[in-house]
Simulated assay, not measured.
Amino acid sequence: MTPAPALLETRGLSLHAAGRCLVRDLEWRVHPGERWCVIGRNAAGKSTLLRALAGLPVPQRHGEVRWLGRPQAEWPAADAAWARAYAPQQAVDRFPISVERLLSLSMVRPGALTAEAVLAQLDVTHLAQRGVMQLSGGERQRVALAQCALQGAPLMLMDEPVSFQDPAHQALVAQWLTGLATSASGAALVASAHDVNWILRAATHVLALHGEGHWSAGRCDEMIRAPRLAAVYGCAWREAGGVWVAA
């Protein structure tokens, strides 16, 4: 039996910006049920990579990205929404519509998820009738995650999905993402993040951007180790009582 194609695949993907190589010859696959976190120092190229994976404009790129085995460039814009969903680091709203209306407009592929269920899971039910332009940064970010999930695409790309969240909501989002990827829908997640301890709760795999185009990838238990973290972040790390700390 021929195996199903990866939800996401890169072939020789290289990205450049401001005269710097961010990623060089990335050969990488993401399969259903996997939860990948992209790590690296500030300006390492995490957001640029996520934009390229989502099919959005980036300064300079070479190589190929495939969704569901089909080259990204061959997907009409209307069909791309069936393949991948993207939550930016910070949403930009131009119209004062309600959260409930925004979520109804976000649904592309009918699925098992309902707006009511996702709002409850992300602790934003009480915001359903509020205008999106009246939300705090953390509230708007959780609504953006709900939009991403309700789109119904099997591949979800999220740029720093907990950057505005308090510790309780960071834990809630980690649990929610795990549930999405392990459900019968067979979804996969690629998210950027900085908090190593949150990554251990939320991810199954890590893609590390080391700078100057270098990268490495593997399972969390292979990647979250002191030498590897030191190489990525440029500082020493130690594990204390099951918690990773930058020394």
Rank of each mutant, 00 (worst) to 15 (best):
P96H: 12
R109Q: 15
G152K: 10
S163D: 09
R101F: 03
Q170A: 15
Y86S: 02
G69N: 08
A171N: 12
P154E: 02
L150N: 11
A120H: 14
A78R: 02
G137S: 05
A174R: 06
L145Y: 09
G152N: 10
L122T: 12
D159N: 09
S106I: 12
S104W: 01
I97K: 06
R94E: 10
P161R: 01
S104V: 05
V118N: 12
A83N: 02
R140A: 15
E116G: 14
P110G: 15
L157F: 04
A146I: 11
M158K: 04
R142F: 02
A112H: 13
V132R: 12
G111Q: 14
A91L: 10
P167L: 11
Q72E: 01
T114K: 12
W75V: 00
P161W: 02
A91R: 05
A174H: 07
L127S: 05
S106A: 15
V99E: 11
H126E: 11
V118S: 11
Q175V: 10
V124S: 08
F95M: 10
G69R: 08
G69I: 10
C148A: 15
Q72G: 01
E139L: 10
R109E: 13
Q175C: 09
L119T: 12
A87I: 05
W82V: 00
Q170D: 08
D166G: 07
A128W: 10
R130P: 08
L127Q: 02
A77V: 00
V118L: 14
D166Y: 06
R142S: 06
G152D: 11
I97G: 14
R70A: 01
L135M: 12
F95A: 11
C148Q: 07
Q165F: 03
P110Q: 14
T125I: 05
P167Y: 13
A153P: 01
A174I: 10
A174V: 08
D166K: 03
F164I: 02
A73T: 03
C148H: 07
Q121L: 01
M158N: 07
L145E: 09
G138N: 04
A171G: 15
A87F: 05
R140I: 08
D79W: 00
Q134D: 14
P154F: 02
L103Q: 13
S104Q: 13
V124Q: 05
G111A: 14
L155G: 02
Q134I: 03
G69T: 07
R101P: 00
L105M: 14
L145Q: 09
E160P: 06
G131F: 07
D123S: 14
L127H: 04
S106M: 13
G131R: 13
A174K: 05
L172K: 13
V143A: 06
A149D: 06
V92A: 15
V124A: 15
D159Y: 04
P71K: 06
A77H: 01
D159V: 08
A73F: 04
A153E: 04
C148F: 08
L102C: 13
A78K: 00
L113V: 10
E139M: 10
V143Q: 04
A81G: 02
F95Y: 14
L127E: 03
A87L: 14
Q90Y: 08
